[in-house]
């Protein structure tokens, strides 16, 4: 592998990891608060379509981003209401929302763009930071990215700080550890958990918008194609810790990048194995084969005030 190829590989790994990273940050927060947010897949898909439609209709990717964020609000609010208001089964309602969103986005896409449109949609331009972007070989290939990639890194650092060092972070984590104690201390478990779900909606929307107008500048039916599930898997593989979750996302991004890189290098590894890798790794992790799993004890358990 030449230095140029390595640079391209790192750059595309980072680009492919970004939607996972954005999704996983929000998912981590909501899982630490006790809500397994399956509907992240549907949230990302909603934002991907709304972002594409907004950018296409106005010619401005910024308005597309705004449209994506707004469109996710009702989806996230529905999930928050179902899990925290009605105390419904989190996984089943999440899967229900995903199939509903897949149906609605497909119908809407065909209504708006027609059945087989390949219209180019205005998307975000690439940008490279000074100094880093001027590095030889690596500068352009690695650092020239859509600004959302850098926003994702900032969001990870900020969220990691809030979870680890603030009162809000303690309250969020306590909702997943011992919600009754949170309730007794006078905070509302329902409010904190709902807020966590809405935050997942926010980060998932950024991830979805990145897919449609950040990365490839088009929308296709069901284009998230499991990215939301992989974000969940990253949190599981990351053992519900920020650092390991980020590493998982980068690893999964690299596995995807390898699918394109390996054939170019003349190495034959079954494509399916690389696509399967995230699920396989996460399965090995939840099977308890690599150390103890520290899932939040109250994960998926609805809280009743009694």
């Amino acid at each position: 592998m030449t230095w140029e190829m390595l640079a391209v590989f790192i750059g595309s790994s980072l680009r492919l990891a970004t939607p996972l990273l954005l999704g996983a940050v929000g998912e981590l927060v909501s899982e630490r608060a006790g809500v397994l947010n399956m509907s992240i897949e549907g949230m990302m898909l909603t934002a991907a379509l709304a972002g594409a439609v907004g950018a296409w209709a106005t010619g401005s990717p910024e308005i597309g981003l705004l449209a994506g964020l707004l469109a996710v609000l009702p989806v996230a609010a529905l999930q928050a209401f179902l899990t925290n208001g009605l105390r419904a089964n989190q996984i089943v309602t999440g899967l229900g929302i995903n199939i509903l969103v897949l149906g609605i986005t497909t119908l809407a896409y065909r209504e708006i763009f027609g059945a087989r449109s390949r219209e180019t949609i205005p998307g975000f331009d690439k940008w490279s930071p000074p100094v880093l972007g001027d590095m030889p070989v690596f500068g352009e290939a690695v650092f020239q990215q859509v600004w959302l990639v850098y926003a994702a890194i900032g969001l990870v650092l900020l969220t990691g700080f809030v979870l680890a060092h603030t009162a809000l972070g303690v309250a969020i984590k306590a909702c997943g550890e011992n919600p009754r104690a949170v309730d007794k201390s006078g905070l509302s478990v329902t409010m904190i958990r709902s807020g966590a779900v809405m935050f997942t909606g926010f980060t998932a929307a950024l991830g979805g918008v990145f897919l449609s107008i950040g990365d490839i500048h088009t929308f296709t039916e069901g284009m998230t194609n499991g990215a939301g599930y992989i974000a969940i898997v990253a949190v599981i593989f990351g053992n519900w810790r920020m650092g390991r979750t980020v590493i998982a996302c980068l690893l999964f991004g690299a596995a995807t990048a390898l699918q394109f890189q390996l054939p170019a290098m003349g190495i034959e590894i079954p494509n399916a194995l690389l696509i399967m890798a995230p699920y396989l790794l996460a399965f090995i992790a939840v099977a308890g084969l690599v150390g103890r799993q520290n899932a939040p004890p109250a994960l998926t358990v609805p809280y009743w005030r009694a």
């Binding site: 179902l82 009605l86 105390r87 309602t93 929302i97 199939i99 609605i104 119908l107 065909r110």
Partner: peptide, 23 residues
């Protein structure tokens, strides 16, 4: 009419049933 319509119907059924069970 796209078959995606069937997904919408199914999704709604799941959400309503699961949502009401606990309630």
């Amino acid at each position: 009419v796209p078959t995606a319509l069937v997904m919408v119907i199914q999704g709604l059924i799941v959400i309503m049933i699961a949502g009401a069970a606990y309630w």
